[in-house]
Design a protein around this nucleic acid. Structure first.
Length: 106
DNA sequence: AAAATGACGGTGT
DNA sequence: TACACCGCCATTT
């Protein structure tokens, strides 16, 4: 299993109401400094719009920037939609950032 | 094989 | 606080 697959596997494991940073995922995948690579994979991921029925997708909306800041996301409405989905799942927010203290995967 | 790429993370100004 | 720049690294071209 290559790094790419690990990233996807880990991302899929993020439970609803929780989020993880790119760096965190990279670390879990074995490369603490490969956050950029993680982001790259999210972009090319099978379904940017996230969890479409039966699709081999990853909940990419549960992946945020280093400080819980919503970055990236090329799907519907960009980060706004991403934020909306996260709130809908029960993720805590502070302004436009994820409350990592309560919602970061750990 | 070499260069380019990127949804990061951190530091500097 | 905001913007710019650099280093990191697996994958892709």
């Amino acid at each position: 299993m290559i790094f790419k697959d690990k990233v996807y596997a880990i991302t899929k494991k993020i439970p609803p109401g929780k989020v993880a940073t790119y760096g965190q995922i990279a670390k879990l995948a074995g490369k603490p400094e490969a956050a950029r690579v993680v982001g790259k994979y999210m972009k090319i991921n099978p379904n940017p719009a996230c969890r479409q029925a039966g699709a081999p997708i990853v909940p990419c909306h549960r992946v945020v920037g280093f400080d819980g800041e919503l970055v990236g996301y090329s799907g519907q409405g960009g980060v706004k939609m991403k934020k909306k989905m996260l709130i809908q799942e029960g993720v805590f927010f502070i302004n436009d950032k994820v409350d990592l203290k309560k919602s970061q995967l750990k």
